[in-house]
């Protein structure tokens, strides 16, 4: 045996090196992209850029600001979270606490969630336009606004609703994972003391799973802040003079701004610094949120491994 060991196993070495190189190249790509964007974006960063508006010049790197886009993006994700969180958490509670994993209904619900996660984002845009803007918005206008065009057009609330549908699977999956990580003994203890099932869930299980619920919300916000395709037709605007003040107003958005500026700018070389700056702001918003979500999630997974063996 010792003699054999000394002979270098070239095949094994080659295979390990090849797969290792593949891994390294992916990691390198992540760092190159982030490094490049951060380096170029940092040059544009200033208080004026982050808190300034577009009134003094949208295409002038020295004067342009992105505050209206930040405001629009934040308003969008706040509304989206209000919509998606209750539905997502309740669905997760059903799936983890009530559903029998073998029943057909559960299978169909899980299938629908997986499918919803895979629907192309542009199809969500079409759906938002067809359902929320035209059907719901048009209906509200007809019934409540006396036929006046108020909600039957692209608006902040419809963009947020579309985004809530898109991020529903993210919230459900993260919350369910957290609920399942809560030790069984806690539930049994609570029930043994005479609590009903619902009381157990609301007062024992859910508080324990709170970090997971928050992770789900964070991941959803990170996703929602970065998606552009679903809001192109449901509420995002190329340019607005005022910040949106009402649910039925349109809004500016960081991601949409990056798209518009990089494809429709009259002079791409001059707008490049603005673009890199906007991208960095967007990345800081979505990426830090995602990073936080991933870290919390891996902690929860580690805890789940400990408790379930």
């Amino acid at each position: 045996m010792p003699l054999r060991r000394k002979k270098t196993d070239w095949q094994s070495f080659g295979f390990t090196a090849a797969t290792g190189l593949m891994t390294a190249s992916i990691v390198a790509m992540v760092f190159i992209i982030l490094g490049n964007l951060a380096w170029n974006g940092a040059a544009q960063m200033s208080l004026h850029f982050v808190f300034g508006g577009t009134k003094e010049g949208m295409f002038d790197a020295a004067k342009a600001g992105v505050f209206p886009m930040i405001f629009g993006t934040v308003a969008l994700v706040v509304l989206m979270t209000i919509g998606v969180l209750p539905v997502g958490v309740i669905t997760a509670i059903y799936l983890s606490e009530y559903a029998r994993s073998t029943s057909a209904v559960t299978r169909v619900i899980r299938g629908a969630i997986n499918n919803l996660a895979g629907v192309p984002s542009i199809v969500f845009g079409l759906f938002g336009l067809g359902f929320f803007v035209q059907f719901l918005g048009g209906g509200i206008d007809k019934v409540f606004c006396g036929g006046q065009l108020t909600y039957g057009k692209p608006a902040l609330v419809w963009a947020a609703a579309t985004m809530a549908v898109l991020t529903l699977p993210v919230v459900i999956v993260a919350t369910e994972e957290a609920l399942r990580a809560v030790p069984k003994g806690l539930r049994e203890g609570s029930m043994a003391l005479g609590a009903t099932k619902l009381e157990t869930i609301l007062k024992i299980v859910l508080p324990q799973a709170l970090p997971g619920v928050i992770t789900g919300a964070i991941l959803a916000v990170g996703r929602g802040a970065g998606e552009v395709a679903p809001i192109m037709f449901t509420g995002a605007a190329y340019y607005l003079a005022h910040l949106p003040g009402h649910l039925s107003d349109q809004f500016m958005n960081l991601g949409y701004h990056v798209f518009v500026l990089s494809t429709q700018s009259p002079d791409i070389e001059r707008t490049k610094p603005i673009l890199f700056g906007t991208v960095l702001v967007l990345l800081v918003l979505t990426f830090l949120l995602n990073a936080a979500g991933v870290i919390v999630r891996s902690r929860i997974r580690a805890r789940a491994r400990q408790t379930h063996g």
């Binding site: 802040a225 998606e227 990056v258 967007l282 979505t286 990426f287 995602n290």
Partner: peptide, 12 residues
């Protein structure tokens, strides 16, 4: 690190 790649918005 690789999972973070999926956190970069597609517009970026």
């Amino acid at each position: 690190t690789i999972e973070l790649l999926s956190g970069i918005p597609s517009v970026v």
